[in-house]
């Protein structure tokens, strides 16, 4: 897909998609959105990059090493936040009972642990989508390992 229009447009549009993805992730707790949808959008931006610029270049941007860390890190972050709940009130993933604010529409930092969880989920989903896509593409390209 060596097309100048595509490349230019993608270059222009990908940062916006990513910003939108981050926006969605951060608004999960108080408005429609959340880690999964935002992460998916974030992942889509990189899939677009792969489609336009090819796997090799995309691999340089987002290599297996990075995706390994991102994927594991996302879940580990989630687990860590969950464990905090145990120490605070005795239940895994406690939020409201731990005395965190319930959340106020419109205020970003008003929902206790949920934004933090959403960040973890977003990272995880984004990296998973990219990894899945890359894996399928690679297998089609290179054959068995």
């Amino acid at each position: 897909m060596d097309d100048i229009i595509l490349r230019t447009i993608s270059r222009l549009i990908i940062p916006f998609i990513e910003i939108y993805g981050v926006f969605i992730i951060l608004h999960g707790h108080v408005s429609p959105g959340g880690g999964f949808s935002g992460g998916a959008i974030l992942g889509t931006s990189l899939i677009l990059y792969t489609l336009v610029f090819g796997v090799e270049k995309a691999q340089k941007k987002f290599s297996h090493k990075v995706s390994d860390i991102a994927e594991s890190g996302g879940i580990l972050w989630f687990i860590l936040i969950g464990l905090v709940g145990i120490f605070v009130t005795g239940y895994f993933l406690t939020n409201i009972n731990a005395g965190f604010p319930i959340g106020e529409p419109g205020l970003l930092l008003s929902a206790g642990m949920i934004p933090l969880l959403m960040i973890g989920i977003g990272i995880k989903v984004a990296s998973t989508m990219i990894t899945l896509f890359h894996t399928v593409i690679e297998e089609a390209h290179h054959g068995s390992a």
Binding site: I75, I79, I86, G90, F92
Partner: peptide, 22 residues
């Protein structure tokens, strides 16, 4: 003891995730 079931799950999951690093 009530926490042990969830801790078991968390421990197993964490191990699974840590294995690429170990």
């Amino acid at each position: 003891i009530e926490q042990l079931p969830i801790l078991n799950l968390v421990l197993l999951l964490t191990t699974a995730l840590m294995i690429p690093f170990t």
